[in-house]
């Protein structure tokens, strides 16, 4: 049995290839950025309320103030970096939180489609022979945990709130309202994440999809019907939201990192 055996004559391998490479690149960059444990914050040394925080590093559970480009201590939820932390692992706030958004994406119905195709090759493309499993069990055995996707949605909704707060933070420097290129980048980030999370299939189900009747017993439409319609509308472009939000979150980290390292200049109204 040959993988990739097909009678198709078109470029069926193109989609699994670019999605496979694209996501792999994201994972490599995210892992690298997470292990850096530095340059995730920029406020031009101004302190006070406001600054740019890389979304990979938000929320800041603990902060190691000795790291280059780290946030001021008052942004930490629980204070100083713990002393018991093993020295082999970088003291990176990103390590503590990235599993949340990652679990959301990895159990997303769209990502499942893409990686079952591109990585598991089950099937690699339609009407193309994939890896054939003698005892194919779909999502009933090893992959049964995918059924808990809705719980990762709850986590992601928390991140929408946190990253929205970070977006507001991005419009201040030392308590002064203003706007910079970074503010806009950090504002778009939670918007894309919200578009992705609110179009989630699990959310579509919870918002109203689980009902058999939207207008029973009164014959009048319920609010949940309208909600479900809205979620369905977002859900129609779920793949687009998934990629846009993923690329953007990485880009936002690159931007904050570059500005914090002094490689890029942040154009803004504060003038410093």
């Amino acid at each position: 049995m040959i993988i990739g055996k097909t009678n198709r004559t078109d470029n069926w391998w193109f989609e699994p290839l670019w999605t496979g490479i694209g996501f792999f690149a994201f994972v490599i960059y995210t892992t690298w950025a997470m292990l850096q444990a530095n340059y995730y914050w920029w406020d031009a040394g101004a302190n006070g309320f406001g600054g740019y925080l890389s979304p990979f590093y938000s929320p800041l559970i603990f902060i190691n103030p000795l790291a280059q480009g780290s946030a001021p201590m008052d942004h930490s939820w629980f204070g100083f970096w713990p002393e018991w932390w093993p020295s082999l692992i970088p003291a990176s706030p990103a390590i503590l939180i990235l599993a949340g958004p990652l679990s959301f994406r990895m159990t997303c119905y769209y990502y499942r489609k893409f990686y079952y195709r591109a990585y598991f090759m089950s099937p690699v493309a339609c009407a193309v022979k994939g890896v054939s499993q003698k005892h194919y069990k779909g999502e009933t055995a090893l992959l049964i945990f995918q059924n808990l996707h809705r719980y990762t949605l709850y986590i992601a909704l928390g991140f929408v709130v946190i990253l929205s707060y970070d977006a507001i933070l991005g419009f201040f420097r030392n308590g002064q309202l203003g706007i910079g290129v970074g503010s806009i980048i950090l504002l778009i980030n939670p918007i894309l994440l919200a578009g992705y999370a609110f179009g989630c299939h699990a959310f579509r189900h919870l918002s109203g999809g689980k009902l058999d009747c939207f207008s029973c017993p009164s014959g009048k439409q319920k609010i949940r019907y309208k909600l479900w319609k809205g979620v369905s509308w977002l859900n129609g472009e779920h793949m687009l939201w998934a990629w846009a939000s993923m690329i953007w979150v990485a880009f936002a980290d690159i931007y904050v990192r570059m500005v914090a390292m002094g490689n890029w200049t942040d154009f803004n109204t504060w003038g410093y």
């Binding site: 119905y109 499942r112 489609k113 079952y116 195709r117 089950s122 099937p123 339609c126 009407a127 194919y136 069990k137 779909g138 999502e139 009933t140 992959l143 049964i144 059924n147 809705r150 299939h201 699990a202 579509r204 189900h205 999809g209 689980k210 859900n235 129609g236």
Partner: peptide, 30 residues
């Protein structure tokens, strides 16, 4: 649970029925 939502059914449906998104995934959620 056997369906792994890889959506080939949706890709080939000549009536453009969103089989995976509108039928199978909602059933999986139920």
């Amino acid at each position: 649970g056997m369906c792994n939502i890889t959506r080939c059914c949706t890709d080939v449906c000549p009536e453009h029925i969103q089989i995976t998104d509108n039928a199978i995934i909602p059933l999986k959620e139920r």
